[in-house]
Design a protein around this nucleic acid. Structure first.
Length: 260
DNA sequence: ATGGCCTTGGTACAAGGA
């Protein structure tokens, strides 16, 4: 029997609010690794105990009110790295660790707010730094997964209404070029390694009945390195948690990788 | 319609998200 590793990413929009849903989802899906974004918790408030009781190890890197990332895993994580080395950042957006034979980088990319804004410039600068660090990580760890909330819809087919969104945040040429520059390091969008249903999104606005109308964006991604590409068996978006009462606005994305 | 929802902080509403 060939065993597979299951990794997932989920922007939970407050781990305090979503903890019961995260525990339910972990029990149902039993992933090997779950990368969380927007935990919105300082590390002293991280729910280690509830997760440990359910059998999950946790590495966290949080801050008050905004951002915050974590890696949950069945097996202990090694060589944990918080944020991008050499890039001075007050915002908690990256947590990386080794699990099994994989290097796993969980990331919450800046939103960017509006093209031309200071926040957009930060989004670009942050991605320049991330890319150079990932390049170095790939040289040391060829079996690498970069997953998280990338805050970019890579192509028009990742947008429910490409005309309305043209040039808007998440859809600008600059953001899409950044995504392509990541792929150019030798990474692959795991979701697009497979035939997928049309109109597949990972985020739906809370407003306008957007989920019911399936009006969303695919902005949460899992990139796998060249060395892993042939081992990827599936990549899916799990819409079920978006149907929960009080859901996150994002759905989890899951990848299955043949064990090395 | 520069909207509509959700979360935090904090206790009214502003900021941020996408």
């Amino acid at each position: 029997m060939v065993s597979t590793l299951k990794l997932a990413t989920w922007n939970v929009n407050s781990l305090s609010v979503r903890l019961p849903q995260v525990l339910d989802w972990l029990a149902a899906q039993s992933p090997d690794v779950l990368a969380l974004q927007e935990t919105k918790l300082t590390d002293d408030r991280f729910p280690f105990d509830a997760l440990a009781e359910a059998g999950w190890q946790a590495q966290c890197f949080g801050q008050k009110t905004y951002n915050g990332v974590a890696l949950l895993s069945r097996e202990p994580a090694r060589e944990t790295q918080r944020n991008i080395p050499g890039f001075d950042d007050e915002q908690a957006r990256v947590i990386a660790a080794s699990v099994g034979d994989l290097r796993v980088i969980g990331a919450y990319f800046p939103n960017g707010q509006e093209p031309g804004s200071d926040k957009f410039a930060y989004k670009m600068r942050w991605q320049d730094a991330l890319r150079e660090w990932v390049r170095a990580e790939l040289a040391v760890h060829p079996a690498l997964v970069l997953l998280g909330d990338f805050n970019v819809a890579p192509e028009d087919r990742d947008v429910h209404d490409p005309v309305a969104w043209a040039g808007q945040i998440h859809c600008t040429p600059e953001e899409r070029a950044q995504f392509q520059a990541l792929l150019a390091l030798g990474l692959h969008d795991a979701f697009r390694l497979f035939d997928q249903p049309p109109r597949s999104w990972s985020w739906w606005d809370y407003r306008n009945l957007a989920f019911r109308r399936n009006q969303g964006l695919r902005i949460d991604h899992i990139l796998v390195s060249d060395a892993l590409r042939a081992r990827v068996r599936a990549c899916t978006i799990d819409k079920a948690p978006r149907r929960n009462p009080r859901p996150s606005d994002h759905a989890p994305v899951i990848v299955e990788i043949e064990a090395g």
